[in-house]
Computed example of a mutant assay.
Amino acid sequence: MDLIEQLVSCSESLLKVLQHPADKRDKQVEKVEQLLAEREKIITRLKEESRENLNQHPKARKIVEMEQDIQKDLRRLYEDIKMDLKKWNEKKRLRQCYTNTFAHVATYDGRFYDKRK
């Protein structure tokens, strides 16, 4: 199989994984990382070849279009994970406020100091 064919195949499978949200995001992220590493190896090998050969290939346009979709879906996945972390940290903060209600209040235990002599 040609390197460009491998790149197209790997990009299509990555796009498929990104576009179908999984119930278990951990598995989805692992699969995405695996496919990105595989694509990186293929692209590194492709860079060693001549540029003229790559630009004249009939599937070069398809690769560019898929790359834009992949970038968009990766940003969406990143934003989803970012929002989940934000929600989790907010829940954690609220839980701590509930368990230790007066932790953020600076008091002197209700003591009164009379400055008069």
Rank of each mutant, 00 (worst) to 15 (best):
47 K>R: 08
6 Q>E: 12
97 C>S: 13
74 L>Q: 00
94 L>G: 09
74 L>H: 00
33 E>W: 03
90 E>T: 07
41 K>D: 13
78 Y>S: 15
33 E>L: 12
52 E>M: 13
87 K>F: 01
112 F>L: 09
66 M>Y: 01
97 C>P: 05
31 K>M: 08
82 K>M: 04
108 Y>P: 03
112 F>E: 04
33 E>Y: 06
7 L>Y: 08
75 R>N: 00
69 D>W: 05
23 D>G: 08
46 L>G: 01
17 V>P: 01
14 L>A: 03
47 K>A: 12
28 Q>N: 07
36 L>I: 06
41 K>V: 10
101 T>S: 08
78 Y>G: 08
13 S>A: 11
70 I>R: 00
74 L>M: 00
56 Q>M: 10
100 N>F: 06
100 N>L: 00
45 R>Q: 14
84 D>L: 09
78 Y>D: 14
5 E>M: 10
95 R>K: 12
11 S>T: 05
115 K>F: 12
99 T>N: 11
20 H>T: 14
82 K>Y: 07
18 L>I: 04
52 E>S: 07
87 K>Y: 00
113 Y>R: 09
75 R>W: 01
107 T>Y: 01
18 L>K: 04
19 Q>W: 14
97 C>G: 04
89 N>L: 07
61 R>Y: 07
116 R>L: 12
63 I>V: 14
3 L>E: 05
69 D>V: 03
21 P>R: 11
19 Q>Y: 08
31 K>R: 14
23 D>T: 03
91 K>D: 14
72 K>G: 02
62 K>H: 01
41 K>G: 09
88 W>I: 15
47 K>I: 14
43 I>L: 04
7 L>F: 08
15 L>A: 09
109 D>K: 10
95 R>S: 10
82 K>E: 04
103 A>W: 00
71 Q>K: 07
8 V>F: 03
40 E>Q: 15
80 D>Y: 03
65 E>F: 09
83 M>L: 03
10 C>S: 13
98 Y>F: 11
103 A>C: 02
42 I>Q: 06
